[in-house]
Nucleic acid binder design. Structure first.
Length: 110
DNA sequence: AGACTGACATACC
DNA sequence: CGGTATGCCAGTC
C-alpha cells in the first residue's frame, strides 16, 4: 500500500481503544472495564490497560481519564502522580489516590 | 505454537 | 481496610 496507509493499520483491539479514548469528555473519567465492555470484551480490562501502556499516540489520547473500576487511579505510563495531577486540572478531585464522587464522574459509552 | 507480560477485576483471608 | 490468590485478554517474545 502506499506510504500514507501503513500508519493506519489495524492492530485490532488497541486501535479501537485509542479511538474510544478520544470520546471521553474533559472532566470525566472512564474505567478500563467500561472501555472493554464498549469494545465487546467485558473481561478484557487488562488488555485495555496494555493497549494504553503501549499507546503510540499518547498526545492524542487522554490516557489519564481511564481509571480502575473501584475508583482508584490505576497506572500511568508517566507515573500515577502525573495522572492524578492531570485529573485535578480537569476538575476531577482525587483524595488519597481515590476519585471523589466517582460514580458521578464516570463517562459511559453509548 | 507456547509461555510470559501487564496501566485490571473479583473473591478471600 | 490491606495483602494474597485466581481468572481474563491481547500483545509480544
Amino acid at each position: 500500500m502506499s506510504t500514507l496507509c501503513k500508519n493506519i493499520k489495524s492492530a485490532g483491539f488497541n486501535q479501537k481503544v485509542w479511538q474510544a479514548l478520544k470520546k471521553i469528555p474533559r472532566g470525566r473519567v472512564t474505567t478500563y472495564q467500561e472501555l472493554a465492555k464498549h469494545l465487546g470484551r467485558p473481561k478484557a480490562a487488562r488488555a485495555v490497560g496494555n493497549a494504553l501502556n503501549k499507546n503510540p499516540q499518547a498526545p492524542q489520547a487522554p490516557c489519564h481519564r481511564v481509571v480502575k473500576s473501584d475508583g482508584g487511579l490505576g497506572g500511568y505510563a508517566r507515573g500515577a502522580k502525573k495522572k492524578n495531577e492531570l485529573l485535578e486540572l480537569e476538575g476531577v478531585e482525587v483524595v488519597k489516590g481515590r476519585i471523589e464522587e466517582f460514580e458521578e464522574k464516570i463517562f459511559r459509552f453509548k
